[in-house]
Design a protein around this nucleic acid. Structure first.
Length: 302
DNA sequence: AAGACGAAAGTGGTTGA
DNA sequence: TCAACAACTTTCGTCTT
């Protein structure tokens, strides 16, 4: 193995040439080792925070993810496969080939981007069981993002997730950032950031999420009757009328309403059960529940 | 024993200077 | 860019069923 010392001449000038996969002695030129693997990360980092985020075990990302590694390249060395120099005429030809290859790549990068994005979009959509209408609108929205050049500098996946998030909300079928994060593998804040960005740049008009939109999901997950569902939505209507929900997380409010409604209909669920399906804590339910009870003057036997 | 309740301290994100 | 801030979570002790 590479000891940092040349076995032939003893010189310490040992050079790792990753482009050729060789370890050579910088002094006498002997090849110490052939076919070495490049253990350098395939990413660059600009500060320690990034380095921590990107460092990981396993194979380079480009082999784990389809499409990402699939770019053809014409390398920069004017040599044939045996390493011999090639004629000036051929060199000129190679130069032109490189040039046009590069141009063609850029022209098709948009197409490729879209292709990756659409397959990812489809994957997430089926994972979340979204209807075709959502997929269509989401795809359309993504195309708008490309046109407006909003993708550059962002992971395709995070934009896709943001687009789906936005579309779901616009169609009154909201998903939480949590859910998107789970199926896309992108961090919640990253999706949120991308979402806010495209909403601003495309000036999308997306209203605040109405808590009652979450109610059917929660009641279904808790196997509660339609009666409870209606009751919960009625409670929320009143609460909204009193301006009780502004600034509150919609899931928390919805969860509290479901909790109250379940108790009122004698189909009681514990705070913990409701909290789990809603993705909030019991404490939050209690806080919302307290507010609802107070403001709506509810008398409930609990 | 399990659930409900609430206080206090901690966390991550938004906002306004 | 930074500090203040609101919403939410975590943790923990107490009370109720």
């Amino acid at each position: 193995m590479s000891t940092g010392k040349c076995p032939e001449c003893g010189s310490k000038k040992v050079i790792k040439d990753f482009a050729r996969g060789e370890i050579v002695c910088g002094s006498c030129g002997i090849v110490i080792e052939e076919n070495i693997e490049d253990h350098r990360p395939e990413w660059r980092s600009f500060d320690s925070e990034q380095r921590e985020k990107r460092a990981r075990g396993g194979a380079p990302i480009k082999y784990m993810r389809p499409n990402k590694g699939l770019v053809t390249e014409i390398d920069q060395y004017n040599r044939d496969i045996r390493g011999a120099k090639i004629s000036p005429k051929k060199q000129a030809q190679l130069y032109r080939m490189r040039k046009w290859h590069k141009r063609a790549s850029i022209a098709s990068s948009m197409e490729r981007n879209l292709a990756i994005a659409l397959s990812e979009l489809d994957r997430i959509a089926s994972y979340l069981g979204l209807p075709d209408s959502v997929r269509e609108s989401a795809a359309l929205l993504y195309r708008r993002c490309i046109k407006a050049e909003l993708i550059r500098g962002r992971l395709i996946e995070s934009v896709v997730a943001a687009v789906i998030y936005a579309t779901c909300r616009m169609q009154g079928n909201p998903r939480t950032l949590e859910e998107l994060s789970k199926v896309s593998g992108i961090e919640k804040k990253e999706i949120g950031r991308a979402y806010r960005f495209i909403r601003r740049e495309l000036s999308l008009d997306i209203p605040l999420t109405d808590p009652s939109q979450y109610v059917p999901k929660f009641t279904a997950a808790l196997k509660l009757s339609g009666q409870v569902q209606e009751k919960a939505i009625k409670l929320l209507r009143k609460a909204i009328g009193k301006g009780l929900i502004s600034g509150r997380g919609p899931t928390g409010v919805a969860a509290a309403a479901v909790y109250i409604a379940s108790a009122m209909c004698n189909e009681r669920r514990t705070q913990k059960e409701v909290a789990d399906v809603a993705g909030v804590t019991e404490v939050t339910i209690r806080n919302r529940y307290r507010e609802l009870k107070k403001e709506l003057g509810l008398k409930i036997a609990l």
